[in-house]
């Protein structure tokens, strides 16, 4: 109340000074009132769905006791974060998370870009459409089902590889789900299979959007396909690549839970190469049911992800201002 009065007083005092500017400002807002009104549902949604729950981050710093209520619980400082840093696992899961997600970003980028460029070269419109549909197909299904497909391939006793393919090649069956050394290859493969199609279509879309005149001019100058790709296609779709990549960097600390949990069938023997922050937290929670600890992990992921985007964006700005996100 007092505040409101103070503001009022201030504005009265300020009226003299801003007599000219204020009404203009107000008028401008009125002009855009319909546009603001149009945005209202969306903005309101973000406030409710995304900003309001952010207060939940306090849970991460509480020694939570629901008999007292969330806010009345004692502060715990960084105690809830300890399990993310104190143990030997902490190093493994952070390493796995960054290496996997980092390699996903790079491999998917290369694969998707390559396929997009090849696809763009296909002349037949019908076939092009056909390929596009097939490539996007894996993106349409949920990870639970992907887990089943992988199992059908790799299962020790019933899998297609061990039962049909390897015997044909005269190779002994491999216990895929207990040999951790294969998974740094299996997981990226599954990830490519599932998501590269989507990225590919995004890149293809931007390649299609490039003005044909550039290529015609290049052909007249005698540039070959490879030169055209390097000096026309890639530079022109760089903004799209940057945007897609920056977004993924922001989420580098979050892993696709389904990929790292469902696909390896939660197999203990594979933990060294399949455990990432999300699955580690989930396993800890299944055993302990501790909400404060999961919140701590969420805060950790958010902050690191945010910092990474800001840094990556900063670097991008230094190199080329136009490609930066903000």
């Amino acid at each position: 109340m007092k505040q409101a009065e103070a503001v009022k007083r201030q504005s009265v005092a300020g009226k003299e000074r801003y007599r000219v500017t204020l009404p203009v400002r107000w008028k401008e807002y009125r002009k855009y009132s319909v546009l603001f009104l149009m945005m209202a549902p969306g903005l309101l949604y973000f406030i409710i769905n995304n900003y309001l729950p952010m207060f939940g981050m306090v849970i991460a710093f509480k020694d939570i006791n629901f008999a007292k209520g969330i806010l009345a619980s004692d502060w715990a400082g960084f105690k809830n974060f300890e399990y993310l840093f104190k143990t030997r696992d902490a190093w493994i899961i952070t390493r796995n998370t960054i290496l996997y997600n980092g390699s996903f970003i790079i491999i998917n980028l290369i694969a998707a870009l390559a396929v997009a460029i090849i696809l763009n070269e296909v002349r037949s419109k019908l076939l092009k459409k056909f390929y596009q549909s097939f490539i996007l197909l894996p993106y349409l299904i949920s990870m639970v089902i992907v887990g089943y497909l992988v199992y059908a391939m790799l299962s020790m006793e019933t899998g297609f590889l061990n039962k049909s393919l390897l015997p044909m090649l005269g190779i002994e069956p491999i216990a895929w789900y207990s040999e951790s050394k294969y998974w740094p290859f299996i997981l990226p493969l599954v990830n490519i299979w599932k998501t590269a199609g989507y990225l590919c279509i995004v890149y293809l879309a931007s390649i299609v959007g490039i003005d044909k005149e550039y290529y015609e001019a290049a052909t007249i100058d005698g540039a070959n396909k490879w030169q055209q790709i390097r000096s026309i296609t890639i530079p022109l779709i760089t903004p799209v690549i940057m945007i897609m990549t920056l977004l993924q960097i922001g989420r580098i600390f979050y892993s696709d839970f389904g990929l790292f949990y469902q696909v390896p069938l939660n197999s203990g023997a594979l933990l060294d190469t399949t455990n990432v922050i999300d699955t580690y937290v989930f396993r800890a929670l299944i055993n302990l049911g501790d909400i404060a600890m999961s919140s701590a992990a969420g805060v950790y992921q958010s902050i690191v992800g945010f910092a990474l985007v800001v840094v990556a964006n900063f670097i991008t700005r230094k190199i080329n201002k136009d490609n930066a996100l903000f």
């Binding site: 105690k79 300890e82 399990y83 104190k86 143990t87 030997r88 696992d89 216990a175 207990s178 203990g268 023997a269 933990l271 060294d272 455990n275 580690y280 396993r283 800890a284 055993n287 302990l288 501790d290 600890m293």
Partner: peptide
């Protein structure tokens, strides 16, 4: 009541999950 040692419980359970079944089925 495992709450006083929850940090350790989380970590130990992860180690256990990694080795237990392999050992207890003779695979390792």
């Amino acid at each position: 009541d495992s709450t006083p040692v929850r940090t350790e419980s989380g970590a130990v359970n992860n180690v256990k999950q990694q080795f237990k079944l392999g050992l207890e089925t003779g695979t390792l």
